[in-house]
Design a binder for these strands. Structure first.
Lengths: 130, 130
DNA sequence: TATCAATTTAGTAATCTTTACTATTTAATA
DNA sequence: TATTAAATAGTAAAGATTACTAAATTGATA
């Protein structure tokens, strides 16, 4: 993997935030420094970087793919109103759970994703009735 | 909500399988009985039925939406090779977990989705090295 | 440093899933 | 049966992602 300026800026910008941006959001961020970067380049690099394990790809509930510079395992909360995804720093469940699932399905289990759905702090403050 | 033949056949066909078909897959199934049904009709009905709670919409990991006639809460295993989604009949975790997440995020948590990723039984049998 | 091959990029087009739109048809009800 | 609101088929549009290609860039080598 070559070290290109585009790839480096993408990594830097992703490292600055903890909002799990989508490819399009990240492209907007990167374009503040590199106005001519192509959305396709952002997608391709996010793909390459996540395949190599340098970043994490978060593919939860029915929306665009999101990306995270933090590769450590953790859980997420997805807001049903604004669509934001934030970290939930609960202890990650051990292999016992995955082994139980593997046994039940007679399958090979590599990992698990746990996503909480609800309404984020901001949206709760903005709207009553959640 | 009216009782149309299209809606009924969609429900019946979805009830026959436990494979969590996508809208396109379900459309193919329904077309064996109603060759002229429109894909848009399938989508619209799946949306209406899932909003009313008659069926479940499963939106896990970065692929098409899937649908399930079984509305009871349960977990899923997604195969990284063939993309299939099957049920994992582990006990669903109680509200303690959701309350902990809500407290951590100062948010309102309505539920959670747990998805195991790995390789399904069939793919394990077909390919070595999983 | 100059050269060179392989990778990467920008820009565009294509693909795929899903939603929107519209004229026509149909279900429910009086 | 007549009426009216909802649903349908078919098509178009939207949005996310991938594919393609000529031109540019990287990293290695002479």
């Amino acid at each position: 993997m070559r070290k290109t300026r585009q790839r480096q800026v993408i990594l830097e910008e992703l490292g600055k935030v903890n909002t799990h941006p989508t490819a399009a959001e990240l492209c907007t961020m990167v374009r503040r420094r590199m106005p001519h970067i192509s959305l396709g380049t952002v997608y391709r690099n996010l793909d390459i970087l996540s395949r190599s394990g340098a970043i994490a790809r978060i593919d939860v509930g029915g929306e665009e793919m999101r990306f995270d510079a933090a590769v450590s395992r953790h859980y997420h909360l997805r807001c049903l109103r604004c669509g934001s995804v934030e970290d939930v720093d609960l202890p990650v469940m051990g292999s016992t759970l995955e082994e139980a699932a593997a046994k039940l399905c007679q399958a090979q289990v590599c990992g698990h994703n746990l996503e909480f759905v609800g309404y984020c702090r901001n949206c709760c403050a903005r709207e009553v009735g959640f």
